[in-house]
Design a protein around this nucleic acid. Structure first.
Length: 677
DNA sequence: CGCATGTGGATTTTT
DNA sequence: TCCACATGCG
């Protein structure tokens, strides 16, 4: 194993709080890790310390994260360009560890499964459910919302309630679904943890150490999992930040820290020093802290936070395009710039303008195999080729509208190829992705004449490569490796092709505030900080608290520079034109308010040029712009606001003082103003 | 089947 | 606040 530096140096570089966390050896310990306080650094040093100084073998440590991304990041930092393979078998997400236990250690047969069960995504479970409803002629209300109902009412079912919410056959469906999943040897994500917990109760598995990252996100099932893993000799080290709980709506328990202290009598440590953000940004963030605690900065004041008030999302996008070009021209890579917003669709306007302005960008959307249709299909082909009992995969492979065989002849051919795949793989040494591609004659189904042919072929080939790589890494026989890979690709297959490209690409990142968690950027813009949008009006006080934490997470992503903005005209049915009260909560000495008029007149001439072009293009067909640009003091008539006097105007915007409604600002071409002289 | 009435949900999303 | 769907009545 080749580490970057010797352990002594690694520990020497820590501050006293971090050091204390690394060296502690309590039975259970929770670390309150504030934003940007070097949480991962501590976790990595802890693993090294336990291994080298305490001689804990890696296979006696269980290291748990919530996302594959967090697991990958930690793995990256634990080992650096090593040549030896390090055995750390119980390192990964909660679900992947549960999977590992079920596959290799716990007797799944007792639950009615065999060891080669596969993990399915929620969509596949939904399809199974729909099939069962038809087959058994079940009466289910609100079938269009079945996915949600399955999720929501599962708990009631498991708690042994007898009546469904709408008094239909939903509970019957649950029990049929359970049987069917066992029959087809399939488990869902939830099942993984539940089954592991069920078996761990009877078949204990106790490591020497349990190390948990982002523990504040644990849900009930995950806490039970921790309880099962922790034997009397087991030590627990959990790190998290109660100020970053933003997923309680999908089940993470509100007060995990409290629960941990209660269940495990855990001691509590704090990492108070933030290394990420300039002190202006950090001071602003502190206003939104909920869990008292101490949060100390370590950096210079830096830039003040700029608060802007653009007219509408379009003008905002134009402004950002110009600003980003300037930042980039000053030598900052695009990937150090991020724009956050509350709702997914808010990226639309930005995307349009960025395309027009040739700014490379990436919208962070969850990408699964399902989002790449050709791989979704190809995976079904491989699944059936691997396991002839997976009739669901067979039917999907043969019946696909786009990629499925078009003629009866092709159909028989593909079926035959899939059925003989295992035998073929046993006889031949498969070294290249192309071998698989050619044997299955994938070319027939990708239609070489179609526009997407090249891209799709590449995607299939790199998917095959990924499988080959996996088998090689795990030192498994090709068929076994592939079967393992496919059985759990719902769990890991997600970042297959895109993720790596995304992370390194030099592009501006657009994402929701939720998606920003765990990331950091030099330049951060949070847009749409309007009343009614941030915070999004919720039903309860708890919802409101979570919105505040969400905003806290957003602003603490910024290292050097932060801009917040709210629209005058948000063009959203939800939002109102006023600024969010979160903006007035930030102490004034930390902020600068941009005056919109000044903004338009001086800094953003270039943007206005393009704005005009765009606006003219949009309205060219409908409106003929006045030849002469009218001077001030002209009278205008507006169909809603009545009579008014022009106060100021430039090429694009016009400000009118109305007799009854006061001052209003319009984009000329869209304002609907009638000039009276 | 067509129409009137009732009801729930709307946003964020990992594994 | 509005939309989509379920239900029930004629």
């Amino acid at each position: 194993m080749a580490k970057i530096m010797p352990l002594e140096n690694e520990i020497e570089r820590l501050n006293k709080y971090q050091k204390e966390a690394v060296l502690e050896e309590n039975d259970a310990c929770v670390v309150n890790a504030n934003v940007g306080s070097g949480k991962t650094t501590v976790l990595v040093a802890k693993v090294h310390y336990l291994h080298e100084k305490k001689e804990i073998p890696y296979e006696k440590m269980v290291v748990l994260t919530f996302t594959n991304k967090a697991a990958a990041e930690m793995k990256d930092r634990l080992w650096f360009g090593e040549t030896e393979t390090v055995e750390l078998p119980f390192f990964g997400t909660f679900h992947s560890i549960a999977l590992k236990l079920l596959k290799e250690i716990l007797p799944v047969e007792e639950l009615g499964y065999t060891r080669d069960f596969s993990v399915i995504e929620p969509d596949e479970e939904l399809e199974l459910a729909e099939q069962l409803i038809t087959d058994h002629d079940l009466h289910i209300k609100y079938k269009n919302r079945l996915k949600k109902r399955l999720e929501q009412e599962k708990k009631a079912y498991q708690d042994g309630r007898t009546e469904t919410r709408y008094q239909d056959d939903l509970f019957q469906l649950f029990s049929l679904l359970l049987k069917e999943k066992k029959k087809q040897n399939k488990v869902t994500f939830d099942d993984l943890l539940q089954y592991a917990n069920e078996l761990l109760e009877r078949y204990p598995f106790h490591p020497s150490w349990i190390i948990v990252d982002e523990v504040q996100d644990s849900d009930k099932e995950q806490l039970i999992f921790l309880q099962h893993l922790k034997g009397t000799e087991t030590k627990l080290f959990a790190v998290g930040d109660p100020n970053q709980v933003i997923y309680s709506w999908r089940g993470s328990s509100e007060n995990v820290f409290y629960t941990l202290k209660k269940i495990f009598h855990a001691t509590e440590l704090t990492l108070p020093i933030n290394y990420r953000s300039s002190s202006s940004i950090l001071e602003a963030a502190k206003v939104f802290l909920q869990n008292g605690g101490i949060l100390e900065g370590s950096r210079e004041p830096g830039h003040k936070i700029l608060i802007r008030n653009p007219y509408n999302p379009f003008q905002e996008a134009e402004y950002l395009a110009g600003k980003i070009k300037k930042i980039h021209a000053s030598g900052i890579p695009y990937k150090e710039i991020a724009i956050f917003y509350r709702l997914q669709h808010q990226s639309e306007q930005l995307e349009k303008v960025f395309i027009k302005e040739n700014i490379p960008y990436e919208v962070s959307l969850k990408k699964t195999i399902k989002d790449i249709p050709v791989l979704d299909w190809f995976m079904k082909v491989l699944r059936f080729a691997c396991k002839q009992t997976d009739l669901y995969a067979r039917d999907k492979a043969l019946g696909d509208k786009v990629y499925g065989p078009a003629t009866e002849w092709d159909k028989q051919n593909l079926l035959h190829k899939m059925e003989t795949f295992t035998a073929w793989a046993k006889e031949n040494t498969i070294l290249k992705a192309d071998d698989i591609y050619r044997y299955l004659e994938i070319d027939i189904y990708l239609h070489p004449t179609s526009a997407n042919y090249q891209i799709e072929k590449e995607q299939v080939l790199s998917f095959c490569n990924r499988i080959l790589e996996y088998a090689r890494e795990q030192e498994l026989d090709f068929m076994i490796g592939m079967s393992n890979f496919l059985n759990s690709s719902a769990l890991f297959g997600i970042q297959i092709l895109n993720q790596e490209i995304h992370e390194t690409a030099d592009s501006v990142k657009l994402m929701t505030l939720h998606a920003s968690k765990g990331l950091e950027f030099q330049y951060v813009f949070i847009i749409g900080v309007n009343y009614g949008l941030i915070p999004l009006p919720g039903k309860s006080f708890e919802d409101e608290d979570e919105e505040r934490r969400l905003f806290f997470v957003g602003i603490t992503r910024a290292k050097d520079y932060l801009e917040l903005s709210y629209y005058t005209n948000p063009e959203q049915y939800r939002a109102v034109s006023g600024e969010s009260r979160y903006l007035s909560m930030i102490p004034e000495h930390l902020t600068v308010r941009a005056d919109r008029k000044k903004e338009n007149k001086t800094e953003d001439k270039a943007d206005l040029q393009s704005l005009r072009k765009q606006v003219q293009k949009q309205t060219a067909a409908k409106t003929v712009l006045p030849e002469q640009i009218p001077q001030t003091e002209r009278k205008v008539q507006h169909k809603r606001y009545g009579l008014g006097t022009i106060q100021a105007e430039d090429d694009v915007m016009v400000t009118v003082q109305f007799e009854k409604y006061g001052k209003k600002q319009f984009i000329k071409a869209l304002g609907g103003l009638e000039y009276l002289d």
